[in-house]
């Protein structure tokens, strides 16, 4: 299936958000995740199943004024 992550499309297997973030090396990092426009609390990562056409935004803190 196909999902969009930070504006890029990716082919992935159906899996939980937690599994996807683990594969990406992002689990446990200081990030915040939006799934189809809704923020997903860290405690819910394992409960969200990714579906075809889903849109993820994954953000972090960077320098700014």
């Amino acid at each position: 299936m196909q999902i969009s992550v930070n504006g890029q499309t990716e082919q992935v297997e159906r899996q939980s958000l937690e599994d996807y973030l683990t594969t990406r090396g992002l689990l446990g990092r200081r990030i915040a995740v939006e799934h189809n426009g809704e923020i997903v609390p860290k405690s819910q990562f394992s409960h969200v199943m990714l579906e075809d056409g889903d849109v993820l935004e994954i953000v972090q803190a960077i320098g700014g004024g």
Binding site: N6, G7, Q8, R30, E57, V59, A61, I62, G64, G65
Partner: peptide, 21 residues
């Protein structure tokens, strides 16, 4: 101390230091 929120660069080494470190 101010900071900005931006998309994580998925291509980068996840162990690269982060501003919050």
């Amino acid at each position: 101390v101010t900071m900005a929120v931006r998309r994580t660069n998925l291509g980068q080494n996840p162990n690269e230091p982060n501003l919050l470190d």
